[in-house]
């Protein structure tokens, strides 16, 4: 749909976008420049690459990066494996009250985050005894618990919008149920999957509150940045933030292109990033 130059209220597009424009400058662009500035300068204000080298040469920081990636990949995979079947069943069922069932999966999001993790901590303590024995496992469980709805929702929406006649066409052309799923349903739900991956992968690299609350002594990228800033090393902290930003950017470009190629003419849910 083409936007007219003047809206119904007689305001131009530029005028209407002014409030958000201001917000964008104050809270997105300005901080970004501050981070870039700090990342490439040292304490005396001189331009330098020391922060980057410091990040790359320090086994603790690179180790944390790899560990975070590991956590994120495992969490995202577990979420995907759990969410896809649920979303598929929910979207496909003729059960009349499926929105109620869907709500059961979404409802944990309505409960305060720290409260949920605290409860989880108690349960895990009962099962494991001492939480510090399984830091990786606990983190993955905590994050999966926290982020699962964000994976279910976009996949469910995509599957719900899937044109049923495509499935009939597939069956008509000789495909059995499994072949139809692999050749039609799965490829057409890729936009939803990518959307879900975005919603889970990125926060699970940085959301260190889960780790902290589960008495976890390990570090992920988020906690590392926090630690640098807590130690007043703004330059080092900014550089790590920037590295994380670059990883996310590359990841976005890659998945967006994949989504474009595969999803054809914009069927299903678009890519939503958080």
């Amino acid at each position: 749909m083409q936007l007219r130059n003047k809206s119904r209220f007689g305001l131009s597009r530029a005028q209407l976008s002014l409030p958000y424009g201001l917000f964008l400058v104050c809270f997105v662009l300005a901080p970004l420049f501050v981070i870039i500035y700090y990342a490439f300068t040292n304490g005396e204000g001189k331009v330098t690459l020391d922060n980057l080298l410091g990040f790359l040469e320090n086994p603790k920081t690179t180790g944390t990066l790899l560990y975070s990636l590991g956590i994120a990949v495992v969490t995202t995979s577990v979420c995907l494996l759990l969410a896809y079947p649920i979303a598929y069943i929910l979207a496909r069922t003729k059960y009349r009250h499926k929105s109620v069932v869907l709500m059961l999966f979404i409802m944990p999001m309505w409960i305060n985050f720290t409260l949920r993790i605290t409860a989880l901590k108690e349960i895990l303590t009962i099962i494991e005894g001492n939480l510090s024995f399984h830091p990786f496992l606990n983190t993955v469980i905590g994050m999966t618990y926290d982020f699962l709805p964000f994976m279910i929702l976009p996949i469910y929406t995509t599957l719900l919008k899937l044109d049923k006649s495509l499935l009939e066409a597939s069956s008509d052309l000789g495909a059995d149920a499994l072949q139809t799923f692999l050749k039609v349903t799965l490829p057409l739900s890729v936009p939803g999957i990518i959307s879900g991956i975005f919603m889970v992968f990125l926060p699970s690299m940085t959301n260190y509150v889960v780790l902290d609350m589960l008495y976890n002594s390990t570090y992920i990228m988020g906690s590392l940045i926090g630690a640098y800033f807590a130690a007043y090393d703004w330059h080092g902290g900014s550089m790590i933030s920037l590295v994380l930003l670059m990883i996310i950017l590359v990841f976005t470009l890659f998945t967006n292109r994949y989504a474009d190629e595969d999803a054809g003419n914009g069927r299903g849910g678009g890519v939503v990033s958080r």
Partner: peptide
């Protein structure tokens, strides 16, 4: 007999071509 086992093919009202 399910549709995939019938020697019958359909041209659908809204074509139902696979967009991917």
């Amino acid at each position: 007999l399910p549709p995939n086992k019938r020697p019958i093919n359909t041209v659908f009202q809204r074509y139902a071509l696979f967009p991917h």
